[in-house]
Design a protein around this nucleic acid. Structure first.
Lengths: 338, 338
DNA sequence: TCAATTGCCGATAACGTTACCGGCATTGAT
DNA sequence: ATCAATGCCGGTAACGTTATCGGCAATTGA
């Protein structure tokens, strides 16, 4: 029942149209050097045979593939937001999109893996690659690379970055404004530059406000809901519980929600919570968070990459994305200062 | 600043290792016919040079690419659920995944587009293709194809399908059990077989319960939130408003929520709402819906495809997926029958 | 000791496409 | 009328890889 038909080749088309493969190729690539009626005849044959050119063969010979590769660590809300923006920009361009997930990027081989996928795409089948949350500072690639939210200090490729430090300051100011003084923090993944910048903003804001850093209300996390849930549990259950928690990303904030709910702690009445990213779930949860316009980052990255591919100059090697505090219902003014 | 280094080829590796390209190729493909120490030497060189084989060239010559293509119409909650399951199965296999979005599939050229993308992937770069929500009954392809939730009657490829009719019956029984008699319906996209089956279940359940079909409480939709929102508005504002609405998918149900909220109609107190799909947002919204295990469908489709690729027999040409009603808080017992 | 087998490896031909070159007509310029 | 320019098209060589064949040396078997 299931069919495997042999696909047409350019040879089949040429034979059926009574011309050479060169001529068919010219038609396929919109070259001018071909008579009007032969062009039409060839196009007819192509339509009739249902011919589609072989991507692999084309990619190997030619250097224009009209294809952009996207390498994301995993299918998670964060990646999905970016993907939406990327998709939007792709739809407006003449390029198509190929998405590659590297799977479990937390493994040791993460760095190696990224290079592997980038090579796989850039050396062959795509005109350029966008890499999300890259942990590699230097890539070897035949094609241009643009990174979104790179997790290394000085990458050798252009990138779109969020203003993590600034966003964190915004959050802290907001919480201070509500009267909070004992503010806990859920850290992001170890070694992740964005996570470090958010943490730095947290610490600097405390210092500026004259509040001593309290290590006991800092929760270790890795950007996942599960880890935060596990690690937040004991702190929330203790007398030591802060009045507010700033989580390094929304998924961690959801982990805090989960732990709080299990302990009968009401958000926001008993505990204020702020996240980071503004993933689509945040809206439904009423989670106050920092929008770093992930979708927009994807959109801009595609535009940068296309310029790059066309050898046009980039305005900026590093595009800094604005952040914006989105106030919802997960925080409350502290009535009686602790 | 941005770098474009030339990628290594198998020739470079061969030269550096002092062997022929044939030998390098043998090592790359794990052939036995190579001496222990030369193999190690070559592997060292590969690691040192950071060589990755050219996908296009490899695909063209060989017929094993260890790559599976996934063609989805768009980045939307529905696709994302499927993608999660696909990704899980991929992670357990030796295959990698390449995702292709066809973009705006509602356009007229949709059918043509699907064939285009399938050809693009199957003729060349992948070992097999999974197509989601396909509107094409027959594909020409060099590689095996498996469909998820195909929207045509008799496709010439194996598929994983939801039990749409059965799921709709479950919903109706549940609403009847709560005392509802005037139940509205939001239709899915025109011509979509899954949507039609759900609608058929709705109609048959009504008939069996001895309730006449009321066309005035049937809302046209296309599976998107926006369209449903627009079309639901006038019905919900009128005296004619039903006591419950069954939406053909969750996104449509969200559209109903949106319209209701704007009109000050409380869900579930003034209006019960049920969806279909159980996308991740449904949990946060408290939306009662039919879980058709989209993620699981993706998982199974990959397994089917891999069997297919390996020329192993398939147990089933059509894998029917169970459905399960997930009761949340969007429905309420009707106290005073209308 | 000699033939047969085995282990290991290199040379060569494809895969389907496009870039490049060149060649035949036809047209235009002087 | 002659030569150059142009329009149109075919032939050939690459792109980087793997499949296939064949060949040399080393090992085995009788």
């Amino acid at each position: 029942m299931p069919v495997k038909k042999r696909a047409m080749t350019i040879q089949d088309v040429a034979k059926a149209a009574g011309v050479s493969v060169s001529t068919v190729s010219r038609v396929l690539n919109g070259k001018v050097d071909v008579a009007r009626d032969t062009q039409e005849r060839i196009l007819e044959v192509i339509a009739k045979l249902g011919y589609t050119s072989n991507l692999a063969a084309r990619s190997m010979r030619s250097h224009r593939k009209n294809l952009i590769g996207l390498v994301v660590p995993d299918i998670m809300p964060y990646s999905i937001e970016i993907l939406k923006g990327v998709n939007r920009a792709i739809a407006e361009s003449k390029f198509d999109l190929l998405v590659y997930t590297t799977g479990d990027a937390q493994k040791n081989g993460a760095v190696l893996h990224e290079q592997h996928y980038v090579s796989l795409l850039s050396n062959s089948v795509t005109d350029g690659v966008i890499i999300v949350a890259s942990a590699t500072a230097e890539f070897i690639a035949d094609a241009p690379i643009v990174a979104i939210d790179p997790h290394v200090i000085n990458p050798n490729y252009p990138s779109v970055q969020g203003m993590n430090y600034h966003g964190a300051l915004e959050v802290m100011e907001y919480l201070f404004g509500l009267g909070h003084r004992r503010i806990g923090f859920v850290k992001g993944r170890e070694g992740n530059v964005s996570a470090q910048r958010r943490f730095q903003g947290y610490k600097d804001a405390l210092e500026k406000a004259g509040i001593a850093l309290d290590e006991t209300i800092i929760i270790h996390g890795d950007f996942t809901q599960k880890t935060t849930y596990k690690n937040a549990h004991s702190l929330l259950a203790s007398d030591n519980r802060p009045t507010a928690i700033f989580a390094a990303n929304d998924q961690s904030a959801i982990g805090v929600y989960q732990a709080a709910e299990e302990l009968g702690i009401n958000v926001p009445n008993d505990l204020s919570v702020v996240g980071f990213d503004n993933i689509s779930e945040a809206k439904y949860l009423g989670l106050t968070t920092v929008d770093q316009f992930l979708s927009e980052m994807g959109y801009i990255a595609v535009q940068m990459l296309i310029k790059f591919i066309n050898d046009e100059p980039l305005d900026l090697e590093i595009h800094k994305m604005q952040t914006k505090l989105v106030v919802r219902t997960s925080c409350q003014r502290l009535l009686q200062p602790a």
